[in-house]
């Protein structure tokens, strides 16, 4: 650790617009003690406001792996005007900045320490609750129920007739002629979501309005990097769904061939989905229903 590493002076002006675009949200909250001002735990950090070394006394809210920061020194870039002195203790609300030999964080808010924290599992739980709270707030409708059917979403409907393989004929000129008027279809992509539609038998509505006994929910079957974290549903799944209203499906990407396969199996497309799963947190176990309802109440 480069304790006492000198902090570089800011040179020149920051480009207009560059700083305004940052939309970081508070993600790591801890109580800590200021150890050294104008210093960093890593060398060569760029200018980002006044720096300080702070010992993490207790992690209040963080993803589970980062609760191990307790007892370690981190570098904080001060984003507020709170006066700090060595030995001061605060609750720090921070956003990520640099992960290297050590950790550097940007301070979003500083506040007085409210109460001592003792529960070792409280930090990841608090973080999970904060994340869930955000998704509950963002959801248009929250339902609980059971998946009764999964099939291809209407977005997978091919706009043109199914084509057979078109082997290449002759050289490039002849071939260009051969494919001069292909039936229209959307390009396929490795990021194709491969939409599926799940029909859910609804037994409770925790947020929003949904008057029907069933709901049709779109989700991506793809395990591409773009989609793998979004829950994949199957008949029999029970739980709580945090749902986002869909837009008209006619310009959804890809998936033409997916429909062909399902059609061959005699599986027609589902009705148009009203809702869509977007985030990993959009499917919660049924045991979370009371928590989700409480968070939904709070978000109103």
């Amino acid at each position: 650790m480069a304790r006492g590493t000198s902090v570089p002076r800011r040179r020149g002006r920051t480009q207009a617009g560059e700083r305004a675009a940052s939309g970081a949200e508070p993600t790591l909250v801890f109580t800590g003690t200021v150890r050294e001002l104008g210093a960093a735990t890593m060398p060569d950090l760029p200018h980002a406001g006044a720096l300080a070394i702070v010992r993490v006394d207790h992690v209040v809210s963080a993803p589970a792996p980062l609760r191990g920061l307790a007892g370690q020194d981190v570098t904080l870039a001060r984003g507020d005007r709170t006066r700090w002195a060595v030995g001061d203790q605060f609750t720090f609300d921070t956003a990520p900045w640099v992960f290297g030999e050590s950790v550097a964080l940007r301070v979003l808010r500083t506040s007085a320490i409210a109460a001592p924290h003792r529960d070792a599992h409280a930090a990841p739980r608090a973080h999970a609750d904060r994340v869930l709270q955000k998704h509950v707030s963002d959801a248009d409708v929250i339902l609980s129920g059971r998946v009764v059917d999964v099939r291809a979403a209407p977005e997978e409907e091919p706009p043109g007739p199914t084509r057979e393989t078109r082997p290449r004929a002759g050289g490039p000129v002849a071939h260009a002629r051969a494919v001069a008027a292909p039936p229209p279809r959307r390009p396929i992509s490795e990021h194709d979501p491969r939409w599926r539609a799940a029909t859910i038998a609804v037994d409770d509505v925790a947020k929003g309005r949904h008057g029907q006994a069933q709901a049709v929910v779109r989700f991506p079957a793809s395990r591409d990097v773009a989609w793998w974290r979004v829950p994949k549903l199957k008949p029999g799944d029970e739980g709580v769904w945090l749902l986002h209203r869909t837009e008209p499906p006619q310009r959804a990407t890809g998936g033409v061939r997916a429909k062909r396969t399902l059609r061959a199996k005699g599986r027609p497309a589902a009705p148009a989905a009203e809702y869509q799963l977007v985030h990993p947190e959009d499917f919660q176990p049924r045991s979370q229903l009371a928590t989700v309802k409480a968070l939904a109440k709070r978000s109103r």
């Binding site: 920051t14 617009g17 560059e18 700083r19 675009a21 940052s22 950090l45 760029p46 980002a48 940007r106």
Partner: peptide, 13 residues
């Protein structure tokens, strides 16, 4: 784009 590759600020779109 960013003029300072080490900057913590969001890159300009």
């Amino acid at each position: 784009r960013t003029s300072d590759y080490r900057s913590p600020a969001a890159m300009t779109v």
